[in-house]
Design a protein around this nucleic acid. Structure first.
Length: 234
DNA sequence: GCGACAG
DNA sequence: ATCTTGTCGC
């Protein structure tokens, strides 16, 4: 993908927060996805004590969900993990991975929040704005807000509320399994985002794009995350 | 000041 | 995110 916009990620936490407050104004909470033929999932993995992030993007055809392309990129991160500033840790590697992606997915799933974030700019919204693509945040837990427990059946939902405002949706993708927390990333509305998550969740808690990205990220990490580091370090 | 806190 | 095997339940 062509990425026309980017910015420095090597900032202080205070500067990063200021940048988020500026970028949040550019997030679009609506937009018609139109016909979807390609969906992508992005994720990152790393070795516990190291500062090398392995980011991946996996593109799947829709609605059959066949993996059609997988790319990865490794980058030294300038940030530790700080709740609310995840994008500054994984962003550099993710941007490079997207640059290597030949496919043009109509929508991208990110591992984390969209607007359900302290400043309304979780990783899905932040990356969505930089890529100028429809993006959806699919998180395994909440960062801000509260949600009632959805009914036990697959497809049940419960709004994620914050100050009486609906900022996302808890979605049960499998019967009796902990829900995933979906929030708008960019250029898509919550309803379409939830529908797409349910349409791509088949037999597992995580929707297929996210699940495939997870699997590939781990694969890449121990394939290159040991060979490259230990054999090129000396 | 004391907790909470995506990945 | 990562560290880790088996095990209980649908």
């Amino acid at each position: 993908m062509e990425i026309r916009e980017t910015h420095p990620f090597d900032l202080t936490p205070a500067e990063a927060i200021r940048l988020q407050e500026t970028l949040r104004a550019r997030v679009r909470l609506a937009g018609d996805i139109g016909e979807v033929s390609l969906v992508a999932g992005a994720d990152a993995s790393y070795v516990k004590g190291e500062d090398v992030i392995h980011a991946v993007v996996v593109a799947l055809s829709y609605p059959d969900l066949t993996v059609v392309e997988r790319v990865s990129a490794a980058a030294v991160t300038p940030f530790p993990y700080i709740p609310g500033l995840l994008t500054f840790r994984e962003g550099p590697a993710l941007v490079e991975a997207f640059r290597r992606l030949q496919s043009e997915p109509e929508v991208i799933f990110f591992d984390g929040q969209g607007i359900a974030h302290p400043r309304g700019l979780g990783i899905a919204s932040h990356m969505g704005v930089l890529l100028d693509r429809p993006a959806v945040g699919v998180a395994k837990s909440l960062l801000v807000g509260t949600a009632a427990e959805p009914a036990v059946g697959r497809g049940s939902t419960a709004p994620i509320l914050r100050d009486g405002e609906t900022i996302g949706m808890a979605v049960r993708t499998r019967k009796r399994v902990k829900p995933v927390y979906v929030s708008v990333g960019h250029r898509i509305d919550l309803s379409q985002a939830v529908d797409l998550v349910l349409a791509t969740a088949r037999g597992y808690r995580l929707p297929e794009p996210t699940r495939q990205a997870h699997l590939f990220a781990n694969e890449v990490r121990r394939w290159e995350g040991q060979t490259t580091l230990s054999s090129s370090t000396k």
